[in-house]
Design a protein around this nucleic acid. Sequence first.
DNA 1: GTGGATTGTGGGTAGGGATGGGGAATTTAA
DNA 2: TTAAATTCCCCATCCCTACCCACAATCCAC
Lengths: 153, 153
Amino acid sequence: MAIFTGTYQHTIDEKNRLAIPSSIRKCMDEDTEGNGFFVTPGLDKCLALYTPLHFKAISEKYNEQASTNRKARNFQRHFFSYTKKVDCDKQGRISVEPKHIDYAGLKKEVIIVGVMDRIEIWDKKSWDEAEAGNSESYENDAEDLFRLGSVPS
Amino acid sequence: MAIFTGTYQHTIDEKNRLAIPSSIRKCMDEDTEGNGFFVTPGLDKCLALYTPLHFKAISEKYNEQASTNRKARNFQRHFFSYTKKVDCDKQGRISVEPKHIDYAGLKKEVIIVGVMDRIEIWDKKSWDEAEAGNSESYENDAEDLFRLGSVPS
DNA sequence: GTGGATTGTGGGTAGGGATGGGGAATTTAA
DNA sequence: TTAAATTCCCCATCCCTACCCACAATCCAC
């Protein structure tokens, strides 16, 4: 499965179009992962984009929980109703729904980041604020999270 | 899996290009390990380069940390967003992002070192300072680390 | 020592990527 | 049936990346 990395600054134009970085598009294999993305409401007020293959895996996981848990069912309703499948146009752009723009507080300048199994879209201002904290605690968090063994250095 | 060793002094040119020593490139097998490198923010303010095969193993380890844990989530964001996949050009060079140059404080002269499963890139000045301390305590550290039969993974 | 091959470094240039805007096709409303 | 609106496609521009070639230094073989 594709592993996404990197940080990119792109712009949303007046038609709500947003170019997905070509290096991100190139690192997914359409035959196995499908084409396009599922745009979902991410945690921490960003948008999270998943490949069709990975979205399927997530859906199945949520579905197991929902069958026995009322809170999970409500979460499931919100999550799926707020999710939209999009395809890239010939220029490699997706169009972002107004409701998603509102949710993540997107302005013209946005940051696109690859985070392992997903692509996140942030408003530039929010990202800069969050990232300042994350980079500060990076080395300490690395030691905390992996102290109990299993450190790939 | 490839084991990297050695110390090399190379230069970053005005286009932010850096030649990977040919003896390092030659000791990895593209068929099994993939081509190019993942440039990651290493601990102790250097850059750590991994082969695609090894980076995949690291990602899977990080993936075990639930993304519902806030600290783990922010760590993942920082690590993967700061990581960039690069390929060597026909001259065996990679291009280093400005962000990575800042992080490791790289100037024109840099030191490239092979450290077992990864390649580290240091600013020459930082390396010389760190190395002075390391070589001084080398024999003592060796005794400490191996006294209890523990293997430094 | 000498010649050739390999390696590291520098610089010009073509092609691809990000972005903006016009226009055709489809939909919705009147 | 026509007008207005939305969506998607295509082209045009700018800029940056990565390729190509060139040269210098080093290493190696003989």
